[in-house]
Design a protein around this nucleic acid. Structure first.
Lengths: 168, 168
DNA sequence: ACGAAATACTTTAGGCTTAAAATAATTTGA
DNA sequence: TCAAATTATTTTAAGCCTAAAGTATTTCGT
C-alpha cells in the first residue's frame, strides 16, 4: 500500500481505484485542516481580545509552566514543532515583558536557560483557565462519550504520519 | 453543558470534574493541532522543493479549478477561510506569473473576476496529482477501513464547532 | 595541541496572516 | 435626488513562520 516517491509507483490498483483512494485521503486532510483552522482562528481572536496575547506566546509559556527549573532554549523548537529562528523574537518579547528570564549557562556559553517569572506564571494560569473554558465551549456540542475515541484515532493518525515521515 | 462566557458559569459539575472535562477537550485540540502541523509542514516543504510553490497559492488554484468560468474575487476569502486583505498579494503574484487573470466586472466596477489560464490549469493539475500522492504516502499507515469513520467524526466536530461559534 | 566538525543560537530575506483603516463604487431611503 | 450606508477591494502595521546563512562556542580526531 505504501507508495514510492519515484515517478510511477508499482501499485496493485488501477488508475480509477487509485484516484478514489487519493480522494478519501484528501477528504481526511481537508476535514482536519478545516477543524483546526476554525478552532485556531477563534482561539486566536479571543486571546487577542481578552488578553492582548498571541497563541505562540501562550504556547511558550505553557511549555515553561511544566518546568519549574526552566528549560534549555533549544528544547522549545523541538517541543513546539517550530523553527529555532522563529522563537528568537518571541522569546525576546516575553523577556522584555517580564514573563520569562533568559540566562546563559555557566557550563556551556552557547546554551541559554529560559524560565518563567512569578509574574509570568500568574499571567499564564489566568489565560490557561480561559483557554480551557473556550475549548469546552467550542467543543460542547460534540458528544462527550466520543472524545476518547476521537483522541485515539488522532493519536493513531499522528503515529502513522510520523512513521511515514521517518521512512521518507 | 454549554458554558457561559461570563465569570463563573453555572455548572452541574464540581471543580474537579470540570477540570477533567477541560483536559479531555484540550487533548482533542492538541492532537488535532499536532496532526495538522505535521502534515502541513511536510506538504509545504514538498511544494517548495518540488514546485517552488506555496500552499496558499495552490489553494487558490484549487478553488478556480472547479470554476471554469471564473470566480468573483470576493468568493475566495470565504471559501478559503482567510481574510480578504491576505489574498490581494497572493492573487497579484498568481496574475504576474500568468496562472490566473483578474478582470473587472462590467456590471459592477467594484467587483473583479478571477479565472485560471490554460497555463495555470496545466500547472495546477500536475501539482494536484503530486499532492494526492503525497497525502496517500503520509496516510498510508493509517488503516484504510477507518478513513470513513474518521471523516465522519471530523465532520461532526466541525459542525459542532460551527454551531458553537454561531451561538457565541 | 589544534584544526575541523558539530552545536546553540541569531540574523536575514521572503512570504503568510490578521485587524483596522482607506479607497472606490453602488445601493438605499428620506 | 442626493447624502448616508453598504459592499468590494486594497493598504498598512505588526507579528508569525521558514530556510539559509552567519556567529560563537565546544567537542572530536589526530
Amino acid at each position: 500500500m505504501a507508495l514510492a516517491k519515484e515517478p510511477t509507483p508499482v501499485s496493485a490498483k488501477n488508475g480509477t481505484d487509485q484516484e478514489a483512494e487519493y480522494r478519501a485521503q484528501t477528504r481526511v486532510w481537508l476535514r482536519l485542516l478545516a477543524c483546526t483552522t476554525l478552532i485556531e482562528g477563534e482561539l486566536r481572536r479571543r486571546f487577542r481580545e481578552e488578553f492582548d496575547f498571541t497563541m505562540p506566546r501562550f504556547d511558550v509559556l505553557a511549555q515553561l509552566d511544566r518546568e519549574p527549573s526552566g528549560l534549555v532554549l533549544g528544547e522549545l523548537p523541538k517541543r513546539l514543532m517550530v523553527s529555532a529562528g522563529n522563537l528568537t523574537p518571541i522569546v525576546d518579547r516575553l523577556v522584555a515583558d517580564g514573563y520569562i528570564t533568559r540566562t546563559p549557562s555557566n557550563l556551556d556559553r552557547r546554551v541559554q536557560i529560559v524560565c518563567m517569572t512569578v509574574e509570568g506564571r500568574k499571567t499564564f494560569r489566568r489565560m490557561a483557565k480561559s483557554h480551557g473554558a473556550w475549548l469546552a465551549e467550542l467543543l460542547a456540542d460534540f458528544p462527550a462519550d466520543r472524545f476518547d475515541g476521537l483522541i485515539g484515532e488522532l493519536d493513531e493518525l499522528k503515529g502513522a504520519v510520523k512513521d511515514a515521515l521517518q521512512k521518507a
